[in-house]
Amino acid sequence: MAGILDSVNQRTQLVGQNRLELLLFKLNGRQRYGINVFKVREVLQCPPLTSMPKLNSFVKGIAHIRGQTISVIDMGLATGGRPIKNVEDGFIIITEYNRTIQGFLVDSVERIVNLNWGDVMPPPSGSGRANYLTAVTEIDKELVEILDVEKILEEIAPSDTRVSKGVISDDEIIQDLGDRIILIVDDSSVARNQVKRALEGVGLPIVAKKNGKEGLDYLVEIGEQCEHSITEKIGLMVSDVEMPVMDGYTLTAEVKSRPKLAGLHVILHTSLSGVFNHAMVEKVGADDFIAKFNPDELAGAVQKWLHE
């Protein structure tokens, strides 16, 4: 299990190629699920867990791993299913999301697969708002469900989307932007709503799209209405990185390669973290990178690039 993750340097070579690596695992039964390897720190056999009073019902217990105390979330329960039966024989996937580290208890871990984001589709339209899927794909002629981990974590510990007083200034530069739009591109409904609430104080209209392909199609359509540059109508774009159909890195590279779109400032806003992200941002030409989710940092960065 120690060798299940590739090195960070190898994984960064996927940037701008619209590719991802999924770690496949199972909860209860035959259904396979996937999680982006970029978000996985470690996979290990479940260690002894310590129970604590007043824990969320989805949290199985606390584990002490490499000098850190980590909450272990039962992925089966957290997604509305049955709890993981054999905890001692289960595995913990240690992840880093939104600047926090947590463990997810799963029944078994299989392998890593390399995919093109173009082979990863949004959830079926009839799946409803209550599902925990952010995307689906087919591997070995079987459907693999990619879970919306941000939604799971939001239900356990809701984020504060309020922007501190004074972060957003009421100045003439913002007023001069008129009715220009802020474009948000994110496949997670939870993340889209978080960003909307954090940026309401900026005072510009907000349009949201669910993946990079939708975002790019929208920009191309608006760009055709502009005489010189997309910046005549779009003030800025805030994009997630990992999304079905087209990821945020590929979206950014496409935007920066098209003359009418190239002037648009792009902030990559993602739960992916780590020092390797700075190299990724430079490679695709993004203007900024903000790790989820700090409303003050996001609002401040948006205001800064709108000034530019």
Rank of each mutant, 00 (worst) to 15 (best):
I152Y: 05
I156G: 04
L177S: 04
E145V: 00
E154M: 03
S189A: 10
G203R: 07
A198L: 04
C226T: 10
G201K: 04
L183G: 10
K196H: 06
V163M: 10
I168K: 09
A191N: 10
I206G: 03
I168T: 06
Q194K: 13
I168C: 06
D160R: 13
D179A: 12
V185E: 01
V202Q: 01
C226W: 05
I156K: 06
E155V: 00
Q225G: 04
V220D: 01
D186W: 07
E200C: 09
I182M: 08
V202D: 00
E221D: 15
D217S: 15
D217L: 14
A198W: 06
E221N: 15
D187Y: 11
L183E: 13
D187I: 09
V149P: 00
V144S: 08
I146K: 05
C226Y: 06
L183Q: 12
D140V: 08
V149C: 02
L143I: 09
I152T: 12
L219I: 05
D160W: 07
K196P: 00
I168P: 02
I139C: 10
G178M: 13
I174T: 13
K196I: 11
D171L: 06
K209G: 05
V190Y: 04
V220T: 03
S164N: 02
I182A: 10
K165I: 13
Q175L: 00
N193L: 11
E224A: 13
A198R: 02
K165D: 12
A157M: 09
L153K: 07
V195C: 09
N211E: 06
V220S: 00
I173Q: 12
A208V: 14
K209F: 12
D170E: 08
S164D: 06
I173C: 08
G215A: 07
S159M: 12
I146T: 08
G203Q: 07
E172Q: 12
K210T: 15
L153F: 10
V163G: 13
P205N: 14
G212E: 08
V207W: 03
I173F: 09
A157C: 09
A198E: 04
V202L: 11
S188C: 13
R162G: 11
D176S: 14
D186H: 02
G166V: 07
E142W: 01
I173K: 15
P205D: 14
G166A: 02
S189H: 02
K141L: 08
L199Q: 01
V220R: 14
L177R: 09
G215T: 08
E138K: 13
D160M: 12
S159Y: 10
N193P: 02
E145M: 07
P158N: 12
L177P: 01
V163W: 05
V149K: 01
E150M: 09
E138H: 08
T161Q: 02
V220F: 00
